[in-house]
Amino acid sequence: MIKTIHCNEIIQAVADLCLQANLELPRDVQNAIEKAKNKEQCALAKEMLEQIQKNHSIAKEQSLPLCQDTGTAVVFLEIGQDVHIDGGLLYDAIQQGVAQGYQEHYLRKSIVSHPWLRTNTKNNTPAIIHSEIVAGDHLKITLAPKGGGAENMSSLKMLTPAAGVEGIKKFVIQTVKEAGPNPCPPIVVGVGIGGNFEKSALLAKKALLRPIGSRNPQEENARLEEELYQKINALGIGIQGFGGNTTALAVHVETYPCHIASMPVAVNINCHVARHKTVIL
């Protein structure tokens, strides 16, 4: 059976996601911050975590965005192959929803139309859309507003097989260390390994969406996540770079088969305002 979804429904759903994602963090991120606060030994870092939590309450009470950088709108679509979109083009509907959401809800417009000519598009479009065709008759839309500060600290390297898993660890840790206080720690670290140049970057970005506390189902990957998590937190960058026990709330690793000559590694860093919100139509 083919399910029909009208574009208007998509536009409204995306506009709503823009507001919801920017006002309230997912429960798993909130819990991770609470846990970090409870185990924090450094007084200054603990106080910063308390203020971060205070920010969550104020944002919710006053309907203000958690962060003034309401980000690039990154949209992940899971399109069931039994879905028919009616009333226009799917991508147009997504873009219209983002424009509507950012304009109606007083979110900051942070997108410029050209990388060096830099004229603001004034409605935060274009969103960056990643889509996947899946089984079923649903349309799953995830909106992940991504701030510029943490995105700027991300990195990608085309390692070769000789570097081995030690080379991967070294690159991830070096990226986090060089980022230092800039990406607003405590951070979430998404690591994409394998595939090719663009696949590794997409894996890293998608890794940021995984619930904090989850582990990659593949044992080797889960072990790497744990080791990187320990090593990153031993760097002592801490909350906002002021030191302490927690630099990363989570490290998520995703892997993919790759070419015999290659071993790409992408590290995408998210700030503590690790926003994403999903709706299924």
Partner: peptide
């Protein structure tokens, strides 16, 4: 001085 990155609603207050 540094203030808390990502605590923007708090700063607005």
């Amino acid at each position: 001085f540094a203030t808390i990155g990502g605590a923007a609603a708090l700063m607005a207050g």
